[in-house]
Design a protein around this nucleic acid. Sequence first.
DNA 1: CACAATTAAATCGTGCGCGATATAAAGGAG
DNA 2: CTCCTTTATATCGCGCACGATTTAATTGTG
Lengths: 174, 174
Amino acid sequence: MLAIKSRAIYIGRVRRGLPDMEKWFEGRELNFEEFLCFSLYSTNHAMNRVYTPVLKELGLTYPQYLVMLALWKKDGQLVGELGQKMHLESSTLTPLLKRLEKLNFVRRQRDAEDERKVRVTLTSEGHALHEQAACVPGQILEAIGMTPEEIIALSAQINKVRKNLESWSLDTTE
Amino acid sequence: MLAIKSRAIYIGRVRRGLPDMEKWFEGRELNFEEFLCFSLYSTNHAMNRVYTPVLKELGLTYPQYLVMLALWKKDGQLVGELGQKMHLESSTLTPLLKRLEKLNFVRRQRDAEDERKVRVTLTSEGHALHEQAACVPGQILEAIGMTPEEIIALSAQINKVRKNLESWSLDTTE
DNA sequence: CACAATTAAATCGTGCGCGATATAAAGGAG
DNA sequence: CTCCTTTATATCGCGCACGATTTAATTGTG
């Protein structure tokens, strides 16, 4: 497949895809920082660490906050809809929503027409939290240190990567 | 601080920082996908999901793989050095390294000169795993669907965000 | 030399995130 | 109408990730 040279990490043969990729990577030693996976991994955690003290004042964790964002955007969604939107499994969402329910920010109810489905609605406290949370993005925006245009452009690129990864997963499990 | 309007999420006053930021965000409703925090969050998890079956063949989890990458790059690092490089707390690294040690990929030893410090070295199996892991980046590269130049540029932007977030954290705890 | 301050790693408890599996409900085929 | 297939969510077990705290070792001060 490929030779090990001075313990460097070399890129193996590409199975399928973009032209000239193999040539470009052959013999080239990537720095750790250049790994996109590591950048996403470490920056996601850094974002979490910045949000945590800010959200602590609201009584929310970071993933809980993201779920609340989705519900403030559109109340009364099904667990499945939330899962699709947030790219999370029900095994992650159900316990998280139960904790939010315990905090009295949401209510979970079986759909009357289809009892397999669970609908998630905001309580009055959940709505009220929205107002309290209004200043959060401004604080984080300051921490990010980019213009809004730059942020939106960067998000678009990152979203594209996610979509490619999701497509690839579906392709390879055919 | 800021008015709530039709349950939309509006951006609060920026405490410090970039010019004209407040004007740009006032009155503008962000879509969920435009949140950089969500893009990083969901794409990091998507990256994890793509790596997981590939790494399963090596007997590694995604975070374990990232640690091995760091050690293949530079063997014999201290736990503290690894922590700095990977932006992880010792409370995360120590259990993870213990699992790698149990898998016989690394060995942990107290430094002889300073017994507070623990040095992590690769075993022969850990070295051998490096060869087996050589094809991993190529497979993932295909899944990402970007040119290497694009990937490196995107990683640099994401790394810049992480650095800004880290600086901001230090500033606000003064 | 003794003790306080600092440093490095480890432990604990909690909150995720996912794959595998289970449970229950709805829809379709015979 | 019955039974099989599909769908939606829930449970379980494991591996993180971190803040708070503890333990042990080193360094610095008086």
